[in-house]
Every structure is written in structure tokens, then in C-alpha cells.
């Protein structure tokens, strides 16, 4: 798969003097890859995303998005990128849902009929046609997230950047969003870059996980299973493993050494097999 993002040894200083240095591993994303960034508060997850969006200018280092330096030439690549900010309300601009979703294509100069087709497509895909004439500002949290996502997806971006997208969503909305993002990624080969604190959702949505420590150091990269089995690394980043992972580690203390699984289905399967094995063993002995 083609590489679409690379960030290397980036340094950034906030006006208040807070320094971030994204060193250690390079941050790399490929076409269609679903990447999750994990790290404690202050590790610079959002700062890294803002660099990709050309909102910040690094004092040092290399950033490459679709072959250009996004801090200098974001305009050249902006139609290829969709964004869902941490507080979705901050990205909703227009007075109605329809106006807001059509905001980007209208501003990119798309023809009226194309705008209409694109908006109708995305509204249908996200199942929000009943919201089309509503004022987005007064929708529920889950609905606002869907409207924000629709606005991000309307131009069929190749890269979707999501900053804490699950924050404030109830479990049902969260699962809906995960399903939706996976579908978008699969159908359009859209790469996802997601920053989150919601550890339990990571195995459901990530191909690759990046682990960041305080100050911006990128200390780990790998599949969710590879990352969540490195307890020392996780502890360095003040991250607890997902509940299911923790369960398997606890079982080891009781001498039950099972292969760690991070999804409910897989874990159920492993535990059930173990039960079957135990009962067979028991009946054999009996």
C-alpha cells in the first residue's frame, strides 16, 4: 500500500513555551490503513493531528502528507482530507444540517448538481436524512457527531482524521460510529487516523496502533495485540490495557495461560474452548 503520511522528528513550541518533540519512531500511515494514536494527556496527539491539517507550523522536522508539506501547502491537499474535531460543535459552521454538510464542496467550487448528489449520498449513508433541515447546533451529541462526520466524508476523502471521536458518546452511538468508520474505510479505501483515550474501542477499529509518551515521543508501533501485550511500554505511557487484555493477564496469575484476545467474540471463543478442554479432561480423569 502506498505511503500517504510521514512525520519525522517534528518539534513544536506552543506560545506558552510548552515544547513537544515527536521523535523516536516515525509516524507513517498507508493508503486505507486504520491507525490509532494512544497516549496520555500532554503527549501531543492532537498537536500531531493539527500538524497534519496544516494548522501548526513546526520549528523543526519533516512532515509529508500526500507528498506535500501540509504546513505549507495544505490547500493543495485539503480536498483529500476529512476531519472530525474533538469537540464536533467547533467544526459545524452553517445554519442547517444540509448547509453544513455541503459547506466544503460549495467552497471548493463544485457544481450545484454535484454538491447535491454528494450531500444526498452521504446523508443516506449515515442515515441522517431526517435531520437535513435541522439546526445542527441544537442536535444531540451523537447526531452532531454524525453531521460532523457527514461534512468530513462528503468529498470522499482519502484520509480521515478524527480527534477523540468517541468522547461523550453513549455506548450505542460509539458502536454505530465504529461500524460506520470501518465501513467507510473498507468501501472507499479511506485511511483513518484516530486519536483516542478509549482503549476498549481500539481493537475494534485499528490495524496499527502508535503509542506516545509525554512530550511527544513515539515509543511503540504495532497491531493492537502487539501493543497491548507490552505491559511495561503501556505503563510508561500511563495506559492501562483493554479490559479483555487485563482479564487474560489476571488469569495468568491463576496459572491459566491463554492466548490474549482483545475482542469479545475471540475471547469468548478462547475461554469456551478452554472450558471444553477442562471438562473433557475432568470427565477423562473421572
Amino acid at each position: 500500500m502506498e505511503e500517504i503520511v510521514r512525520v519525522s522528528n517534528l518539534r513544536f513550541i506552543y506560545p506558552d513555551g510548552t515544547k513537544l518533540h515527536f521523535h523516536g519512531l516515525d509516524f507513517v500511515v498507508h493508503q486505507g490503513e486504520r491507525v490509532v494514536i494512544l497516549g496520555p494527556n500532554g503527549s501531543g496527539k492532537s498537536t500531531l493531528l493539527f500538524h497534519l491539517l496544516g494548522l501548526f507550523m513546526a520549528s523543526e522536522g519533516m512532515i509529508n502528507v500526500f507528498g506535500v508539506d501540509s504546513s505549507k501547502d495544505y490547500i493543495k491537499i485539503r480536498e483529500r482530507i476529512g476531519v472530525l474535531l474533538q469537540n464536533v460543535e467547533n467544526q459545524i459552521i452553517a445554519p442547517t444540517v444540509w448547509d453544513d454538510i455541503s459547506f466544503s464542496p460549495r467552497n471548493y467550487g463544485y457544481k450545484k448538481e454535484d454538491v447535491k448528489r454528494l450531500v444526498e449520498d452521504v446523508i443516506e449513508k449515515l442515515d441522517i436524512s431526517h435531520l437535513r433541515d435541522k439546526v445542527p447546533h441544537y442536535l444531540s451529541g451523537g447526531e452532531k457527531t454524525k453531521v460532523g462526520l457527514a461534512g468530513a466524508l462528503v468529498t470522499k476523502p482519502e484520509l480521515l482524521i478524527l480527534d477523540e471521536p468517541f468522547e461523550g458518546l453513549d455506548p450505542t452511538c460509539r458502536m454505530d460510529l465504529i461500524g460506520l468508520l470501518n465501513r467507510v474505510s473498507r468501501e472507499n479505501e479511506t485511511a483513518l487516523i484516530i486519536s483516542t483515550h478509549d482503549i476498549d474501542t481500539v481493537p475494534l477499529i485499528a490495524d496499527t496502533v502508535y503509542l506516545m509518551a509525554m512530550g511527544g515521543e513515539i515509543v511503540g508501533r504495532g497491531s493492537p495485540k502487539e501493543i497491548f501485550t507490552q505491559l511495561e511500554l503501556l505503563s510508561k505511557c500511563h495506559i492501562a490495557p483493554p479490559v479483555l487484555g487485563a482479564l487474560f493477564f489476571e488469569l495468568r496469575k491463576y496459572g491459566i495461560n491463554l492466548d490474549v484476545s482483545l475482542t469479545v467474540e475471540e475471547a469468548a471463543c478462547i475461554i469456551a474452548n478452554q472450558f471444553v478442554y477442562f471438562s473433557k479432561e475432568k470427565s477423562g480423569v473421572g
Binding site: Y74, L85, I93, S104, N107, G151
Partner: peptide, 27 residues
């Protein structure tokens, strides 16, 4: 937040002054 949203969603583009003013004032 508004300026950031306008920027990343294409609401502020070089040389499209009228569109920019319209977007910003609606903002």
C-alpha cells in the same frame, strides 16, 4: 475555533475574497 473550522473545511481560500467574507461573516 471558527477560524480553524473555516480553514480545514475550505471556508477560507486564497483569492476568493467575497466567498471568504461571506463565510466569515456568517460565522
Amino acid at each position: 475555533n471558527l477560524l480553524r473550522a473555516l480553514r480545514i473545511r475550505g471556508g477560507l481560500s486564497p483569492k476568493r475574497y467575497i466567498k471568504n467574507i461571506s463565510n466569515f461573516t456568517s460565522g
